[in-house]
């Protein structure tokens, strides 16, 4: 079974992403939305959460949310794919279920 995990909290404020990564089965997808997009930035002391997990999980970030927050696509951790709302819908239908981590 494939699961799309969504995370909407900053990893600098909550441990939501860490819990998601710990409990997501290999091969799953993680989409960072809302304040979750801060976790996708390279160069921070929590960037390792995704760096360490990206071999087992596919990471996506919602483009409109990084734009809203003034973040640059150039500074995302390597391997994270930027998607738009259409891509969000496609990920939702291509996975068996969606798990929203709060």
């Amino acid at each position: 079974m494939s699961i799309l995990h969504t995370v909407n909290k900053s990893t600098y404020e909550r441990d939501t992403l860490e819990a998601c990564v710990r409990l997501a089965a290999k091969g799953g997808s993680v989409l960072l939305i809302e304040d979750g997009v801060y976790s996708a930035m390279s160069g921070g002391n929590k960037s390792s959460v995704i760096e360490n997990a990206k071999g087992d999980l596919s990471f996506y970030v919602l483009g409109p949310d990084i734009k809203a927050r003034g973040l640059s696509e150039d500074r995302l951790i390597d391997g994270i794919k930027v998607i738009d709302y259409k891509g969000f819908v496609e990920l939702t239908v291509s996975n068996d279920t969606v798990s929203a981590w709060l």
Binding site: E13, Y38, G63, P64, K67, G70, S72
Partner: peptide, 23 residues
Amino acid sequence: VDDGVYQLMKGQDTSEVGIKNFS
């Protein structure tokens, strides 16, 4: 402090998320 520093990020553009850009 903490995630509050993100409030002052340059170049915020909320046109695609339907929220007022108050920056």
